[in-house]
């Protein structure tokens, strides 16, 4: 009987893992392409990590934004790789929170070599959110936890 329970549990774990989105590991040049490719859609890029409490706290704002505003692209860029190159923790997190936004892992080491290439004013501290109008080049970088309404305001600031 006990064995059966374990089997069922095991099957459940497997099936939930199978439903999770496929998280790709990207390189800096892939991210730079997102930042610079001209599109009518405002790009909202959030830099986060599973270990970062304020990041985890603000993620629901991005999930809500996804359903509220279908004219933008949201990318949640996990910065976990620097401390833990195994993607398992990020995958488990995305599954557990049932995240619908696109999640990618930035698989780069030696951050000093590339932080400035994402944004010169970025200190490297998490969380950080970058909002870009690729048509006009207007961009906003926020280097702190966001609160209700902040994202909408930032998007309208780069939109016109």
């Amino acid at each position: 009987m006990k064995k059966l329970v374990w089997l069922i549990l095991f099957a459940l774990v497997l099936s939930s893992a199978a439903m999770a989105q496929n998280i790709s590991q990207i390189k800096l040049k892939d991210l730079q392409r997102v930042l610079t490719t001209k599109t009518d859609r405002i790009q909202v890029i959030n830099f986060w990590a599973t270990w970062c409490a304020p990041c985890v706290k603000e993620i629901p704002l991005f999930e809500k934004l996804r359903t509220d505003n279908t004219t933008i692209d949201i990318t949640l860029v996990s910065m976990d790789f620097d401390l833990d190159p195994d993607p398992a923790k990020v995958e488990r997190f995305v599954t557990r929170k049932n995240l619908q936004n696109k999640v990618v892992i930035l698989a780069e080491t030696d951050p000093n070599a590339w932080i400035d290439k994402i944004d010169k004013s970025w200190s490297g501290a998490l969380p950080a959110t970058l909002i870009i109008n690729t048509q006009t080049g207007k961009r906003k970088l926020v280097q702190k936890e966001l609160h209700e309404g902040d994202l909408e305001k930032l998007i309208s600031e780069v939109s016109n």
Binding site: C52, P54, M79, D82, P111, N112, I115, D116, W122, S123, G124, A125, L126, P127, A128, Q143, K144
Partner: peptide
């Protein structure tokens, strides 16, 4: 001067 990924100071 260098930069690193890190935890933001909790203001």
């Amino acid at each position: 001067k260098t930069k690193a990924i890190g935890c933001g100071i909790k203001w």
